[in-house]
């Protein structure tokens, strides 16, 4: 392996993304750091409002105002994305990093043929003749399981699952090194969810891109991801490979999260949940942000913020229980 390939594909260093709202500064992403390698799938898990979508958008620098990246760096393939000009960044979007959004019903232009979405993207980034782009778009449609005959359909003529397939084709059409999928299956029914996940897994083998899968569903991560990143209140509390995570979660929040997955074999068991509510991101609790809901909380948890430590090789956790 050459030294170039050993460089992580994506490396976040203390990334901070704040929203400057009228009520105060919402620290949606607060000092998040992690590395991911080429071809890896990272499942980014967190409850609603934990900042996971913001994190995804901030990699592409698409945070809507009043949001802003206020600190930290995003290294993609060795380039600091936060330092690029808007025009250079535009060339990264789509070409190097693709994105799939949550709601396939509204993420396509209702007045543009589905095939043209892809053709338009290929032509504008690569300047190839239209016929070439149409050819490529058709073979892409086939790859994602859409008949090329549907090229001239408008989005409203397709089902949600088919539209999500189009979105995936669109994210892949320039062969990016990284695809960020923001809850790609949340708006779909379970059968279609499964099909889409299967499709993404298959395409990952063909295209070999890295994938950040943003979701609130831990079971999806168990199925497709290599690594899992748990976000809580704008911070990364645990980052680990999937196997060790599901065998022995480190952070109390991860533990509670796994316990709250309903188990069909224990049918008389009451549904478990994490007591309390997620903290406000305007005035997050002092110390560890989870201490209010944490069963293991000690006095210092409410006073000082724990550092992120490497518990084992490649397993990071932000909790005092693992600090010697």
């Amino acid at each position: 392996m050459t030294s170039m390939n050993r460089k992580p594909l994506l490396s976040l260093e203390n990334l901070k993304v704040y929203y400057y709202t009228d009520e105060g500064v919402v620290k949606a992403v607060d000092s998040v750091s992690f590395n991911m390698d080429r071809g890896e799938t990272v499942g980014l898990v967190g409850e609603s409002g934990s900042g996971k979508s913001t994190l995804g958008l901030s990699i592409l620098r698409l945070i809507p105002p009043p949001g802003k990246i206020v600190g930290g760096k995003v290294f993609f393939d060795g380039i600091d994305l936060t330092a690029l000009s808007e025009d250079e960044m535009r060339k990264v979007r789509g070409k190097r990093i693709g994105m799939v959004f949550q709601d396939p019903m509204t993420s396509l232009n209702p007045l543009m043929k589905v095939g043209d979405h892809i053709v338009e993207t290929i032509v504008s980034h690569e300047g190839v003749p239209r016929e070439k782009a149409v050819e490529r778009a058709c073979s892409l449609l086939e790859d994602v399981g859409i008949l090329p005959e549907r090229f001239n359909d408008y989005p409203h003529q397709l089902s949600g699952g088919m539209r999500q397939r189009i979105m995936i084709a669109l994210a892949l059409c320039l062969k990016p090194d990284l695809v960020i999928a923001d809850e790609p299956t949340s708006a779909l029914d379970v059968i279609v969810q499964y099909q889409i996940l299967e499709l993404m897994r298959k395409l990952k083998q063909v295209y070999g891109m890295g994938l950040i899968l943003i979701t609130h569903d831990v079971s999806i991560v168990a199925e497709v991801a290599d690594r899992i990143a748990i976000m809580y209140a704008g911070q990364l509390v645990e980052y680990s490979d999937v196997n060790s995570f599901f065998n022995s979660p480190l952070h109390p929040y991860s533990e509670a999260l796994l316990e709250s997955i309903p188990n069909i074999q224990l049918s008389d068991q009451k549904l478990k949940y994490i007591p309390g509510i997620p903290p406000s991101l305007i005035n997050p609790p002092k110390g560890c942000r989870f201490h209010v809901r944490c069963p293991y909380a000690e006095h210092r948890c409410g006073e000082v913020e724990p550092q992120t430590v490497e518990f084992e090789r490649g397993r990071f956790v932000k909790c005092f229980r693992y600090v010697e």
Binding site: K91, G94, E120
Partner: peptide, 8 residues
Amino acid sequence: EAAKAIGA
């Protein structure tokens, strides 16, 4: 947003 995400 999706259009911007593909670099339009």
